[in-house]
Amino acid sequence: MDDVALYAPMTYDESGYPRYAFPANHPAHGDEDYTERRNRIAHLGAQHVYGTPAPEIDYHERDHETWRVIQRSLAERHDEYAATDVVKWAAELALPADRVPQLNEVTERLTAMTGFGLQPAVGFVPIEEFYGVQADRRFYAAQFIRHHSQPLFSPEADVVHELVGHAPALGNPKVAELYRLTGEAVRRVAEPRTIELISRIFWFTLEYGVIEEGGQFRAYGAGLLSSFGELERFREADIRPLDLKGMATTEYDITDYQHVLFAGRSIDHVHEFFSEFLRTVDDEDPDRIGVSF
């Protein structure tokens, strides 16, 4: 299965209206009602104008029930597997547990905390754009929620991934700075391979990062925090110390559980490591680190 087809199975018809065509191994395959609702959500997002409120989504009761199931399941796993700081960030953000939040209400909270805001992501956002807008304290976020048949699994980054995984970190000033610095770094460099380098370090920190805490590894990355399965499995991975070359040269499969992770000694250690890289990275770095893409 082609990764883009699985994670962004959307095209536009002749009139410019979004159309999803879910592959056979996607949970939503064959569900015409869900597909049409996804099309409408994508259409609303595509019409969004930056600087205006994100479109309000008319989530169904089935969507809210899916959110409730996920919230209950992940809350238990976070107590056991998430970094203590993450639990605090989530409590400060205080997402509703009984319904799917709207991007606007989460943006209002984030703006007051760190100045960040969420804007609708439609289909596949080019990597330079996805990271680049973070320099302006903006973050692309999906508005759809995964299919109800598999509430604890999604082959795509959905609103659960965005709001449970990324939003609490975006509400913490120290970690939000890493997102902003990522955007500045991507805008500063010119070579695609340097952007790929930045993306890989981002993947192994803000997406799939862990830290050592109390003699155990605990998760802080969005991809781990928003996935029931990843939280159950991540301690079985080959967990290595933070290392730029290791992160840059380690291949990963976005359709599978992660088999290699990198751990910091603390959130402060991760911040020091990643922020130093982001402030100094330039187009000579791939050669200096000794990687080729």
Rank of each mutant, 00 (worst) to 15 (best):
M1C: 11
V4I: 15
G16Y: 08
A21V: 14
F22N: 08
A24Q: 11
A24T: 14
H29C: 10
Y34D: 10
R40E: 15
R40K: 12
A42R: 00
A42Y: 01
G45N: 00
H48G: 09
H48Q: 06
V49C: 00
Y50D: 15
T52K: 08
T52E: 14
T52Y: 01
P53D: 05
A54I: 08
P55E: 06
E61N: 03
D63F: 03
R68M: 07
Q71S: 14
L74S: 07
H78W: 15
H78L: 12
E80T: 14
A82Q: 03
T84F: 06
E92T: 12
L93H: 04
A94I: 06
P96A: 03
A97M: 13
D98V: 06
V100L: 08
V100R: 08
P101Y: 14
Q102G: 11
Q102R: 05
R109L: 12
M113G: 01
M113Q: 10
T114M: 09
L118R: 03
P120N: 04
P120E: 07
V125T: 13
I127G: 00
E128S: 06
F130L: 12
Y131S: 03
V133D: 02
R138A: 07
A141L: 09
Q143N: 04
Q143A: 07
F144I: 04
R146T: 14
H147D: 11
S149C: 12
Q150N: 10
F153S: 04
H161A: 00
H161P: 04
E162R: 00
V164K: 01
V164I: 15
G165M: 13
L170V: 12
G171S: 05
G171F: 11
P173K: 03
K174D: 15
K174I: 15
V175C: 09
A176V: 09
E184L: 14
E184S: 02
R188M: 13
R188E: 06
R188W: 10
A190D: 15
I195R: 13
I195H: 00
E196T: 15
S199V: 11
I201G: 05
F204D: 00
V210C: 02
G214T: 03
A219W: 06
Y220G: 05
G221L: 09
L225Y: 04
L225N: 02
E232K: 07
R235A: 02
A237D: 13
D238M: 01
P241R: 05
L242V: 13
L242R: 02
D243Y: 08
L244T: 12
G246N: 03
Y252N: 00
D253T: 01
Y257V: 13
Y257Q: 07
Q258T: 13
V260H: 09
L261N: 04
L261R: 11
F262W: 09
F262A: 06
R265N: 07
E272T: 15
F274E: 09
F274R: 00
S275T: 11
S275F: 12
S275H: 13
E276K: 08
F277P: 01
T280A: 07
V281P: 11
P286Q: 03
I289N: 06
I289V: 13
